[in-house]
Write a protein that binds this DNA or RNA. Structure first.
Lengths: 144, 144
DNA sequence: GTTAGCAGTTACCAAAAGGATAGTGCTATA
DNA sequence: TATAGCACTATCCTTTTGGTAACTGCTAAC
C-alpha cells in the first residue's frame, strides 16, 4: 500500500511513492528540491494574491492594487515584473487615449491551480483552528 | 458547471465555488485571505523542507541539518522554534547520556500533506519546463 | 590527550523584502 | 480651473531573512 509523505494514511499517487520510484529510500532530496523550486517562484506575501486577483478579472494596475489589502504601488509594480519574468503574467499595453495597461494570466499560470486550491483549503481550516469559526467578523477588510 | 479559479476548466469542488457560496461575486477577498493565512505559516525557504526532512525520519538536529542543502545551524534553530510555535513540530528532550533531542511532526503537520504534494508536483514540472528534463544531473547536491 | 560529534548560541554583517510618502506626466470630468 | 484617476517611479527607512564564524559544555572514539 502506498502512503502519504507526512502520514501513513493511504493515498492514490503520492510524493513518497514517486520518491521511492526514483530509488532514493533514505534522504529523498528529490522531494525537497522540487518543493523549493516551487517556493522560489511563489515566494513572498504577494505573488499568489496577485495571481488570484488577476484571475478574478482585475486586469488594471489600480484595480489589482485596490483588491489586495495593504499592498502598495511599489510592491505591486515589482511583483508584477517578477511574475512577468516567470511567464505567469502577461503585460499588454494598448495605444488608446490615454494608454491603458492590462495584466493577464498566461496559460502557464493555470498550472498553479492545484497549489492555490491546496493553500486555500489549508488556510481556511487553519483560520478555523486558530480562532473559532464564528469570528469571521474579525477578518481584515479591504478598504478602510 | 463549476470551474477552477484560474481557468474555466471544470473541477469537482473548487475555490471559486466555495467563494460563490459565500455570496461574494466581485472581489472575493475570501480567496486571497485564507491563502495568505497559509502563506504566513509556511513562508520562507526553509519551513517545508524541514517538515519534509523530519517526515522522512530525520529526527535529530544535525541529521536534519545534513539533509537540507545550504541550511545553517542558526537558521535551522530559528525555524524549528517557529514550527514549534505553530504546533507543527514537537521537540522532545531525552534524559540519556548525553542528552538527546528529537524533533517530530505533530498530527497537525499531516494536514499540510496536500499542500506539499501540490508544490512537489508543480515544482517537478516547473523544473522540467525550465531546463529540459534531461539535465537532472545539474541538480545541486547535498554535501559538497 | 586530541579530535570529532552533538545541540545549539552569540555576535556581526549583508541582502532582500516591505512600508511611507511624495511626485511624474497624462487625461477626463466637474 | 481644479480635482481626480491612471500607471507608475523615486527616495528613504525599517524589518526580516540569511550567511560567517566562533564558541559553549558535554561525551565518545582514536
Amino acid at each position: 500500500m502506498v502512503t502519504g509523505i507526512l502520514t501513513d494514511q493511504p493515498m492514490e499517487l503520492t510524493v513518497k511513492e514517486k520518491c521511492m520510484e526514483k530509488g532514493d529510500h533514505k534522504d529523498c532530496l528529490g522531494v525537497i528540491m522540487p518543493v523549493r523550486d516551487a517556493l522560489d517562484v511563489i515566494n513572498g506575501k504577494w505573488k499568489l494574491p496577485i495571481i488570484i486577483a488577476i484571475s478574478r478579472g482585475h486586469k488594471r494596475f489600480r484595480d489589482i492594487e485596490r483588491n489586495i489589502p495593504k499592498i502598495t504601488s511599489k510592491v505591486l509594480s515589482k511583483e508584477l515584473k517578477d511574475l512577468e519574468a516567470h511567464k505567469l503574467v502577461k503585460r499588454s499595453v494598448f495605444d488608446s487615449q490615454p494608454v491603458t495597461v492590462e495584466y493577464t494570466l498566461t496559460p502557464y499560470a493555470a498550472t498553479l491551480n492545484p497549489v492555490i486550491d491546496a493553500l486555500f483549503a489549508w488556510g481556511t481550516q487553519h483560520r478555523k483552528t486558530i480562532f473559532g469559526s464564528a469570528e469571521v467578523a474579525e477578518m481584515p477588510v479591504m478598504q478602510e
